[in-house]
């Protein structure tokens, strides 16, 4: 049994009488590539919000490695190596793309409270940011204000910001949502090319992509974990078929 990178133990989230997450548990081994699927409104984003500390669970715990991080603030969990991207693009509109990524790098390095040297003097961060942007085919956009970019490019900036924190655990909430299929394959190539020890959980609706990049799959339905397994197991599961295709289980 390999080491555990991230563990959710019986997470619950309720709003009034509405249960968005019911006893959701999940264990990710170090370096695992794991897909989280489920119909719209199943509670996938809520689950990511609970893992990252955006929301406080009504019950349950989150562990990064051995450490219980349930009481830690979002930024403290990032410091422990867990980063996320947002389903709904959340960027810094009037900062340039380069500034945004440089900021993420400086935050990671603990240099963002430096007030006596200019940003440009941190040339190491600038160079690293440029390399990252090149890797995501954003080199030409580096100097432009983020808000001037096309939607597809903004999705890439979203990923660039997450990668700039050099995560050990990366949570991707529909990273390729709303970008053309050819480009979304490209996005996942970059993600698949990350170092093997980076643990990745990604939410994705495109089953082809899920089957191509995931080693294991979790299916969330109506706030509860329906099943977990290999892509093949999930693809052949009658309950999953029913959820997705509305078919009655055969036999």
């Amino acid at each position: 049994m390999s080491a555990v990178a991230l563990r959710a133990a019986g997470l619950n989230k309720t709003w009034g009488g509405f249960v968005a997450n019911r006893d959701v548990s999940l264990e990710l081994a170090v370096g695992e590539r794991h897909a989280l699927i489920g119909p719209n409104g199943a509670g996938k984003t809520t689950f990511i919000n609970l893992l990252t500390g955006v929301l406080t669970p009504t019950a349950g715990d989150v562990y990064v490695g051995e450490e219980n991080v349930t009481r830690l603030a979002q930024h403290e969990r990032v410091a422990r190596g867990m980063t996320r991207t947002y389903q709904i693009t959340s960027l810094f509109p009037s900062l340039t793309v380069l500034e945004s990524v440089v900021l993420a790098i400086l935050e990671r390095e603990g240099l963002a409270t430096n007030w006596w040297k200019s940003v440009a003097q941190h040339s190491g961060a600038a160079r690293e940011a440029k390399d990252l942007l090149e890797r995501l085919h954003l080199g030409a956009e580096a100097g432009k204000p983020t808000k001037s970019l096309a939607y597809g490019k903004q999705r890439l900036v979203e990923i660039a910001l997450a990668l700039a924190t050099k995560p050990k655990i990366l949570l991707l909430d529909e990273p390729a949502a709303g970008i053309p299929a050819a480009q979304s394959a490209e996005v996942f190539e970059v993600i698949a090319g990350l170092p093997r020890d980076v643990t990745i959980l990604f939410i994705e609706h495109d089953m082809q992509i899920v089957f191509r990049f995931a080693e294991r799959v979790s299916v969330l339905v109506a706030g509860a974990m329906l099943m977990q397994g290999t892509p093949d197991e999930v693809a052949n599961d009658a309950r999953v078929k029913q959820v997705y295709l509305g078919e009655a289980p055969h036999d």
Binding site: V78, L103, A104
Partner: peptide, 12 residues
């Protein structure tokens, strides 16, 4: 610009 994004970069 976006205070809710900052914690995701590790900033308080």
């Amino acid at each position: 610009e976006n205070a809710t994004r900052m914690p995701a970069l590790g900033a308080s």
